[in-house]
């Protein structure tokens, strides 16, 4: 489904990603973890097209995506959310989903929009102004909703749970779990909370200083001494 070969990214003189190799199967749910500044969001930007690597290959669904612009990747089935929600300004929640559907998927299906709104519990806010009328949890839900509306084969979720209180987190977790069941799409998720990752993912990939230092089942990865050392230390035992 997704294959990254020898991805390297440099900003100025700084190596942000070095020789990253990574692959995902269709429908797989994988967690991407690592300390701050490890290059997780940069890797997302490489996959979705916001950052062009200095070397390497991005293959998605059998197509070489390295030179494809953002919109083509979205149309090919790569959906993503931003860590800081980026609703489309000036548009209502429903219009946000409509634009995503119209351009990402190619045609508008109102019933499908309703389904996504219901699923993310955004129905009451459908007519609200996306940029000013939503609480943080709703903005995060809208991020997921926009990506879903493009009918992705792979969903890149960048810390969709960060900033939510415990209850909101739990609700959102359930939503994500249901997402996997209901839509059968692959998910690559950046998340700091190890419990969340362990519950959600069959596989975890750890980035540190721009390199993949571990890749395997949550259990195996979180017991890897190297991961414990570089990652959050004691938290791995929680």
């Amino acid at each position: 489904m997704l294959q990254l070969d020898n991805i390297a990214v440099r900003f100025g003189g700084l190596n942000v990603l070095t020789d990253v190799n990574f692959a995902m199967e269709t429908g797989e749910v994988v967690g991407l973890v690592g300390p701050n500044g490890a290059g997780k969001t940069t890797l997302f930007n490489v996959i979705s097209g916001l950052v062009r690597p200095v070397s390497g290959r991005v293959v998605f669904d059998g197509r070489d995506m390295l030179r494809a612009p953002l919109y083509q990747r979205a149309r090919a089935g790569l959906g993503r959310t931003f860590q800081i929600p980026q609703p489309m300004h000036e548009l209502t929640v429903r219009e946000n989903l409509r634009v995503a559907q119209r351009f990402g998927r190619g045609r508008v299906d109102e019933a499908r929009i309703d389904e996504i709104l219901d699923f993310l519990k955004l129905r009451p806010k459908a007519q609200a102004d996306a940029a000013s009328g939503l609480a943080l949890s709703e903005l995060k839900a809208l991020e997921v909703g926009k990506a879903l509306a493009t009918e992705p084969k792979l969903l890149l979720l960048d810390e969709v749970l960060a900033g939510l209180e415990t209850h909101g987190k739990r609700l959102f977790m359930q939503t994500l779990l249901a997402l996997r069941e209901r839509f059968g799409i692959g998910i690559l998720i950046i998340e700091h909370d190890i419990e969340t990752i362990s519950n959600l993912c069959q596989r975890v990939c750890v980035l540190d200083f721009g390199k993949v230092i571990a890749d395997g089942t949550p259990q195996a990865v979180f017991e890897d001494p190297q991961v414990i050392k570089s990652y959050t230390g004691g938290a791995a035992h929680a």
């Binding site: 300004h89 548009l91 634009v99």
Partner: peptide
């Protein structure tokens, strides 16, 4: 039109429109 929606959205949130498939 839907094009108008996307164009209006591009003002303050161009990347947000591009990642959902809009050829801005």
């Amino acid at each position: 039109s839907d094009y108008g929606l996307a164009l209006r959205a591009m003002h303050d949130s161009e990347d947000a429109t591009r990642v959902v498939g809009v050829n801005s």
